[in-house]
Design a protein around this nucleic acid. Structure first.
Length: 330
RNA sequence: GGGAGCUUAGUUAAGUGGUAUAACUGCGGCCUCCAAAUCCGCUGUCGGGGGUUCGAUUCCCUCAGCUCCCG
């Protein structure tokens, strides 16, 4: 039987997903190295400059970073001119890391556009692109080509709606868009407000604006995960390492620079807990326990996306992954 | 040795003479621009024994454990 796909198929994309602390980074580095790949990060924390330790960013190559500031001659070696990045990890180019400052926001639609642009750059120079991350929303917006309503956040409107009760907001939504009842939690203020925002801007029901386009890539999706017991151990170890590496100093420094603890960047795990410690609201051991617990819960929430995606091939050994990738890119 | 108080889910607490409530944890889930965010569902409890009572987690007695005060 012949496949009905046209001969000039979609570009190939290797995707590596998995929850936090599952070993995505290690696997992606090995694979990218072996197959001459470039990595596009799909991580809602790693986008922020200055959040290094607490976001578990893969550490940027020190040598290349130093060379970069020394002189023009050497700079070339440290900057991938074709795909425009200076973020190398073990010599592998990484993209979409350190792209906004902690007081900026990056919307999902902006992320998707950037990722598609990078993927096209990488494809043009025949490197193998790897989309790697634990932020399922980012991953799926790209691989399933979500057509996100072109309605940027409206701060004023959000602030106004925020004052109303959830009940009122929900009634309002259902009146304007009865079908929204099927997929919007009546208690979830944030999502109700977003739906109302989209309706207000487009004058069309939100329920008709959650579309998927044709897939843009031929994907191989590899998944990595650990058992709950392993996760617990790894998370505890990682938290310790983060503190050893200077997480508290990193947090103090960010606060000193004036970034708000309420910003999306600093209100996430590893930062909010340490901020409470720095502000003497909790002890260090309490903060550590809380971080570990929050990490474990996060793993669970991330897995609810990945569990139900039957396309994911769960990887136990690196060699399995190598085989799959090499077959896929042939 | 004397006196007082406390004992309710894994934890912290509410409450009632008609078999009990919440938060957090745990387990599961949702997800189309804050997503490491937001939100939802489920499991699970009256320290032991005796008495009063139609009925006791609630009132009384007693035992045990804990806390505090006096010596």
């Amino acid at each position: 039987m012949q496949k009905s796909n046209p001969p000039a198929g979609r570009p190939k994309l290797v995707v590596i997903v998995g929850p936090t602390a599952s070993g995505k980074t290690a696997l992606s580095l090995k694979l990218a190295k072996k197959f001459n790949g470039e990595i596009i990060s799909a991580d809602s924390r790693a986008i922020y400059k200055g959040l290094d330790i607490g976001s578990a960013k893969p550490p940027r190559d020190v040598t290349s970073y130093k060379l970069q500031v020394i002189g023009k001659e050497l700079k070339r070696k440290t900057f991938n001119l074709k795909t425009k990045t200076s973020y190398f990890v073990n010599g592998v180019p990484h993209h979409l890391i350190d792209i906004v400052s902690p007081n900026e926001t990056l919307t999902l639609s902006q992320y998707k556009k950037l990722a598609l642009a990078k993927l096209s750059d990488i494809g043009c120079q025949k490197a193998v692109p790897f989309l790697v991350g634990g932020t399922a929303l980012y991953i799926y917006s790209v691989i399933d080509n979500w057509l996100i309503p072109e309605v940027p956040p409206d701060k004023k409107l959000r602030a106004k709606l925020e004052k109303l009760s959830v009940k009122k907001l929900y009634e309002k939504l259902i009146k304007k868009d009865p079908k929204a009842e099927e997929f919007i939690d009546s208690q979830n203020k944030r999502r109700i407000i977003r739906a109302l925002e989209v309706i207000a801007a487009t004058d069309k029901p939100f329920s008709q604006q959650r579309q998927k386009g044709q897939p843009l890539f031929d994907v191989l999706i590899l998944g990595v995960k650990k058992s709950p017991e392993e996760t617990k151990k790894i998370v505890a170890r990682r938290t310790k390492q983060m503190l050893k590496a200077g997480l508290v100093a990193e947090v103090k420094n960010l606060l000193k620079k004036g970034y708000s603890p309420k910003s999306p960047a600093l209100s996430g795990i590893h930062y909010k807990e340490i901020i409470d410690y720095v502000n003497k609201k909790t002890s260090l051991s309490e903060a550590i326990a809380l971080i570990n617990k929050n990490d474990e819960q996060l793993v669970h929430r991330q897995m609810t996306w990945f569990k139900k995606d039957k396309r994911i091939q769960w990887i136990n050994k690196q060699t399995e992954a190598e085989k799959l990738v090499s077959l896929f890119i042939k």
